[in-house]
Simulated assay, not measured.
Amino acid sequence: MTETLTGGCQCGRIRYAVAIDDDDAYLCHCRMCQRATGGVSIAFKNVRIADVAWTTQPPERFRSSPIAERGFCRDCGTPLTFEFVKPGATMDLTVGSFDEPGRFVPREHSGAESLHEAWIDTRGLPRVRTEDNPSTSDRWIDALGKLPD
C-alpha cells in the first residue's frame, strides 16, 4: 500500500513529500558515507525519484565522488540524499530526515567492507535518556524552557 510521508532538514528550509510502498531501509557503511556524515554508517530509504516532491526547495548538491552526489541543506548541514550522477529510477533519502524515522526497519548492510562490528550490536551498552543527562538537559531547559521534541 502506497503512503505519502514527509521530511526535511533540521532548520526546515528544505522539506519533501515522498510516496513509499514499504518500511524497508538499509545501513551504508562505505567509506564515502562515513566521510560524508562523520559517522560509522548512515541509514537510507531507497525511493523512486519520480515519487519525491520538494515542497519548499530542492537541496543543494555536493559531488562527493565521480559517480555520486549528495543533497544537503546549506544552512543547517543536514544530509538528505544520495544519488548517482547517472541517475537511475531511484535515489536514497536519509532515514533521519523523515518526520517519522522510527517506522523504518533496516534490511541490509551495504558497504560491508567498511563495517565497524563494534558499532553494530550495542544492546549491552547502558542507555541514558536526554532528561537523565543533566549536562545536556540543563542546557535545553536554559535555552528553550523544555527538552526538544
Rank of each mutant, 00 (worst) to 15 (best):
P101N: 05
L125Y: 04
S110V: 15
I120Y: 01
V95T: 08
R107K: 15
L125V: 02
D121C: 06
P101V: 04
R107G: 00
R127D: 03
G96R: 05
F98I: 02
H116S: 11
A112F: 08
G124D: 14
R123M: 03
L115R: 15
H109N: 15
S114N: 13
L125H: 08
P106D: 06
L115M: 14
E113H: 11
D121R: 10
V105R: 14
D99E: 12
H109F: 12
I120V: 15
G102I: 04
V95I: 11
W119V: 13
R103V: 08
H116T: 10
E108C: 07
E113F: 08
H116Q: 15
F104N: 05
H116I: 15
E117Q: 13
S97M: 04
L115F: 10
F98Q: 03
R123F: 04
R123C: 01
F98V: 06
S110P: 00
V105C: 03
H109A: 09
F98W: 02
E113T: 09
L115A: 07
R123P: 00
G124F: 06
P101F: 04
V105E: 10
P126A: 07
S114M: 09
S114E: 10
S97E: 06
E100D: 15
R123G: 05
A118N: 06
H109T: 00
G102S: 09
R127K: 14
S97L: 02
R127H: 11
H116Y: 08
V128S: 04
H116V: 14
S114T: 07
V95L: 14
S114A: 14
S97D: 03
E108H: 13
S110W: 05
I120D: 06
L125G: 01
P106K: 08
F104V: 01
D99V: 00
A118I: 08
V95S: 01
G111S: 04
F104L: 05
P101K: 08
A112I: 11
R127Q: 13
D121F: 07
S114R: 10
V128I: 14
R103L: 05
E108Q: 15
I120A: 08
L125N: 09
E100A: 14
S97Q: 01
A112W: 04
H109I: 02
E100P: 00
E108D: 13
P126C: 06
G124P: 02
L115H: 11
P106T: 13
G111V: 06
H116W: 12
G111W: 08
F98N: 07
G124N: 12
T94R: 00
A112C: 04
A112L: 07
E100N: 15
F104T: 06
S97G: 03
A118P: 00
G96I: 01
T94P: 00
A118M: 07
S97V: 04
G102A: 09
E117K: 12
V105I: 13
P101W: 07
W119G: 11
E108G: 02
E100L: 08
P126W: 09
P106E: 10
T94Q: 00
V105W: 00
T122V: 15
S97P: 03
S110L: 14
T122D: 01
E108T: 09
S97I: 01
R127A: 10
E117F: 04
E100S: 13
H116E: 14
W119Y: 13
P126F: 10
P106N: 12
E108I: 02
V128C: 09
G102Q: 12
W119M: 14
L125T: 02
T94M: 02
G124K: 11
D99W: 03
R107C: 04
G102H: 09
